[in-house]
């Protein structure tokens, strides 16, 4: 563990990790197996919250907070908003899965293969990420992110950040144009 971290060292970290991971996996499975869309959405929210907790364990409280505000508090509410208006009786009669097993298995296998490669490679001692990720301890996490984004001498990711926000703006305008027949 990082000795610089303020306060006491965290307790029972692996158990929390396994617990949260289990919640996420169970939530993820429930999302695709529930026929009732609202139940799926609730399972997805659980998954997202568990993910936020994982971020906290990684000493990224800012990301965790943003995860809760944006995904669990914002986007999922809009999801629920739409889902609630769908007639459930009808939804339960619809066929649940598309017959795309082949593509699905291929994608899952590729992702699994990637994870296994990374895991075996790191255990063998190979350095996959040569730069080394800058780790920001708990107390300065938010300020650290701010420095990365908006440092006075041109933050490393400022351009990418601005491009992303521009993309979002385009998406918002596009949504308005598509939804409104007459502006």
């Amino acid at each position: 563990m990082n000795p610089q971290i303020a306060g006491n060292p965290p307790v029972a970290t692996p158990y929390f990790f396994y617990g949260l991971a289990a919640i996420m996996i169970i939530g993820g499975i429930l999302v695709i197996t529930r026929k009732n869309a609202v139940h799926s959405a609730l399972a997805l929210i659980t998954t997202l919250l568990a993910q936020a907790a994982l971020y906290l364990m990684l000493y990224a409280p800012f990301v965790a907070g943003v995860q809760i505000i944006l995904y669990a508090g914002g986007i999922m509410v809009l999801f629920l908003f739409v889902i609630m208006l769908i007639s459930i009786e009808r939804a339960e009669k619809e066929r649940q899965f598309n017959k795309q097993w082949l593509v699905g298995i291929a994608a899952a296998a590729a992702l699994g293969g990637l994870f296994i490669t990374v895991y075996t490679a790191t255990t063998k001692g190979r350095v996959l990420f040569p730069e080394g990720r800058t780790s920001y301890v708990d107390m300065q996490n938010t300020q650290g992110i701010a420095n990365l984004l908006f440092d006075q001498h041109g933050g490393t990711y400022m351009f990418a950040f601005e491009i992303a926000s521009l993309l979002l703006l385009v998406a918002i305008i596009g949504a308005v144009v598509m939804a409104k027949k007459r502006i």
């Binding site: 409280p61 907070g65 505000i69 669990a72 999922m76 996490n141």
Partner: peptide
């Protein structure tokens, strides 16, 4: 460290 963000985030969960 994220105090106010935490408050806003968690209180926004009540809408769920």
């Amino acid at each position: 460290n994220i105090g106010i963000l935490f408050m806003l985030g968690v209180s926004s969960l009540s809408v769920l």
